[in-house]
Nucleic acid binder design. Structure first.
Lengths: 230, 230
DNA sequence: TCAAAAGTGTTTCAGCTACACCCATGA
DNA sequence: TCATGGGTGTAGCTGAAACACTTTTGA
């Protein structure tokens, strides 16, 4: 086995990509960016950029979000690293994909040039391997919805129960039973009625009550249960 | 914003690490390696090595396993990439952690120099961030046990039901009810009795039947169910 | 015939599912 | 007073949990 000089190992690059999801207009939307640099100029893709090898990925992402949407105060996690050898023409680039959830009301500043929101379930043909990354995030999003109070990260401070249900319906492409859903979500004790009622122009039917997420009551991790599914 | 020469981005390195789990002697064991290179010579850690930036991680891991244990024919998946900035003294090193499961009977060749099996739940003080990686793998292992026929990847071709239960008991640190476990596992239709009975020296009690995993009957992915846990 | 572990059967009960029904509003 | 969506209550079914009981072996 011949010895390889150690500096030959240090020739890889890193990038960060963000899959930011929000809920508005009864749709789950993802933030996309029109690429300006080769090899994919003009195409749509996830917002992202190369980072330096000594940059902390979390910090780089936080700064990047300020540039893009004016805030980094929202739920975000590193999803995983995508490592296909031939992702980038300049060499090996490992992409750290992040997954973010933001209430639409929190997006106060206008979007930066080239950015736009798209229905998460209708997006395809993104550059690089971004279709695959988006798919991973949507899968993880569903997982989170089942095991953690993830919905509330994407809802405004005051929300109505049918919007909660609508997010589940969209994510799982289903039509949950509203009475049962209501019982389930209230049983968890994670929400409380604000006392206010939503009066909205053009709203048909009985005006719904506003609820809020009781973040203090949710303590830590999903408790593992021994329960088979296969 | 000043422009950074593009080659400055290509100065990171990659490594692969394997967390290989097996079941023997009524314990879940993990393969560890005594490190020979600085900065951790003499310490225990997960088997791993640096790879070149243009190497495919899966292929590199497959070759690495042949060197270590003489086979790469077992269940293995990339867990995730660990990316802390200060993992390695020579510069930024991203580690791709793999998670492998192998039946003990399949380990026919003697272990290479410096390798040894350790009880997964008693290991600590590993070099680099390997304690953290091991912890992640054990968590993922539990997850897999609940949603996929993961147990059978770690069991021999012919196994007995109480060993299946024992693996669950070890992984979840519990004592499942044997009659109920038996019903559950058989209901899934994923195993069948081979017709043989285990007669083993010094075995006390009624001799158990052998079962085998019906790999053909398990089709693809865990079916997502809408079921809340919080 | 006793101990030990494999293996079977049955009862109970919590909790999910389905669905009937009532409420508050605008038109 | 009707349509629409919000919201409540309940009966019934399913499946997990608990556990009593039988079987097969070695000593």
């Amino acid at each position: 086995m011949k010895t390889i000089p150690v500096d030959h190992f240090f020739r890889g690059a890193f990038s960060i990509d963000m899959v930011l999801i929000t809920f508005t207009g009864n749709e789950l939307k993802v933030l996309l960016q029109e690429k300006v640099d080769p090899p994919h100029e003009g195409e749509l893709g996830l917002p992202g950029k190369l980072i330096l090898p000594n940059e902390d990925t979390d910090r780089a992402m936080n700064n990047f979000m300020i540039d893009l949407i004016g805030t980094n105060e929202f739920y975000k996690k590193q999803l995983k690293a995508f490592s296909d050898v031939n992702r980038h023409p300049l060499g090996r680039v490992i992409s750290f994909a992040y997954y973010g959830l933001i209430p639409f009301e929190q997006l106060t500043e206008p979007l930066a040039e080239g950015l736009s929101w798209h229905n998460s379930y209708e997006v395809s043909g993104l550059c690089f391997d971004h279709d695959r990354i988006l798919k991973s995030v949507l899968k993880r999003f569903r997982k989170g919805l089942l095991r953690h109070p993830t919905v509330f990260e994407i809802l405004p401070k005051k929300f109505i129960l049918s919007d909660v249900k609508r997010i589940y319906d969209l994510a799982f492409d289903t039509e949950l039973d509203s009475p049962n859903f209501r019982k389930l979500i209230r049983k968890s004790d994670l929400i409380y009625p604000t006392g206010e009622i939503m009066y909205e122009k053009d709203f048909i039917g009985r005006p719904p009550k506003y609820y809020s997420f009781n973040r203090e009551r949710y303590l830590g991790e999903f408790k593992e249960r021994i329960h088979f599914y296969f």
